[in-house]
């Protein structure tokens, strides 16, 4: 193991922790511009988190230990996920521990604990949100797995850095299968991160909310961790997308400090573009009824499976 690899690893985790709220701030800013509103400050998510850390936590009387510990589990799952997703370099010492399928499992663990914690208090909203979250999750997960399988079959490995490196260094070719998977992945990203066609991240309207309903009982540092974890999740999903579909510019295993440095502005550029794109999608589309969500995710599944089948048939 080279020292550079270790530096890359540490840098990636720190970058994920630091940039995730900024990424959310950027999306909110773009959305405000597109909707002709005055944009909130880019740093607003940081201020929110800092404010919450300074407050005293209020916890419901009936809350069990699970409720208290869930934010820490969810947050650490997201940090761990950030550690094994290649965002700047592919030579990451941690990634030998977990491949792409384990990554999906890690995200699922976070979801399970979040839902359990939401049900723990026993309020109607928490249970409602948890149930909806599980419904979205169980439909989105197969689609995500198949998206990863398509990339895995092309690269003949399930290790995410190896897939990224293979796709980044390969001779440029048209892959209809990867294009289909990219569409499927975008749909999964929107659904899993409580973005607009499925959930509205900026509302607390009882009948429609999913993610916010689960966090209603949380306050202070717990809420700060949960919101930070949500930002990290979005960042992680964006980085999985980059790793699978636009891996160019990432520092490979033969990388030098220079390529690592060069990958940082590239990552920033990709994040800027994707953030603006997400804001655009959220502005032009309306929120779906909850009962239409399965249809939305079935479309994602369809795209993913079509990608897989097309790859198997055409070899492309």
């Amino acid at each position: 193991m080279r020292t550079l690899d270790l530096i890359t690893q540490v840098l990636e985790i720190i970058a994920a922790l630091a940039v995730a709220p900024l990424f959310v701030g950027w999306i909110n800013q773009c959305r405000a511009w597109l909707q002709n509103r005055r944009a909130p400050s880019l740093w607003l998510p940081y201020r929110g988190i800092r404010k919450l850390f300074h407050k005293d936590a209020v916890i419901a009387e009936r809350a069990s230990g699970l409720f208290r510990i869930a934010p820490y589990i969810v947050f650490s799952a997201m940090v761990l996920a950030a550690a094994i997703i290649p965002s700047m370099g592919t030579a990451l010492p941690f990634t030998t521990a977990a491949d792409a399928i384990a990554l999906v499992g890690l995200l699922a663990t976070a979801r399970v604990f979040q839902s359990l914690a939401a049900m723990d208090i026993g309020t109607a909203f928490g249970t409602l949100g948890a149930r909806r979250e599980m419904m979205v999750g169980f439909l989105a997960e197969p689609a995500l797995l198949i998206v990863i399988f398509v990339a895995s079959i092309i690269s003949a490995t399930t290790a995410l850095p190896a897939i990224t490196e293979n796709l980044a260094t390969q001779h440029l070719a048209l892959y209809p299968s990867l294009a289909f998977s990219a569409i499927a992945f975008t749909l999964v990203l929107l659904a899993e991160n409580a973005r607009i066609p499925i959930d509205n991240p900026s509302t607390h309207l009882e009948l429609t909310m999913i993610h916010e309903a689960m966090l209603l009982e949380y306050s202070a540092r717990h809420l700060a961790l949960m919101e930070w974890a949500a930002a990290l999740k979005l960042f992680n999903y964006a980085c999985i997308g980059f790793a699978l579909f636009v891996p160019w510019g990432i520092s490979t295993s033969e990388g030098t400090p220079l390529t690592l440095l060069a990958s940082i502005p590239l990552l920033a550029g990709k994040l800027l573009i994707v953030g603006a794109g997400l804001a655009l999608v959220e502005t032009v589309s309306a929120k779906l009824r909850v009962f239409r969500a399965p249809e939305f995710l079935a479309t994602a599944f369809l795209f993913a499976v079509l990608g897989l089948l097309v790859h198997l048939l055409l070899g492309a």
Binding site: H171, A173, L174, P176, S177, L306, V310, A316
Partner: peptide
């Protein structure tokens, strides 16, 4: 896949899109 000439790749893309359009019609 890397060995395929570009026009064949485009043909494959057309084929894949045809399949997609059929699904779009279905739904």
């Amino acid at each position: 896949m890397t060995g395929l000439p570009f026009d064949l790749q485009l043909l494959n893309l057309c084929a894949a899109l045809l399949l997609l359009v059929s699904f779009a019609m279905l739904t």
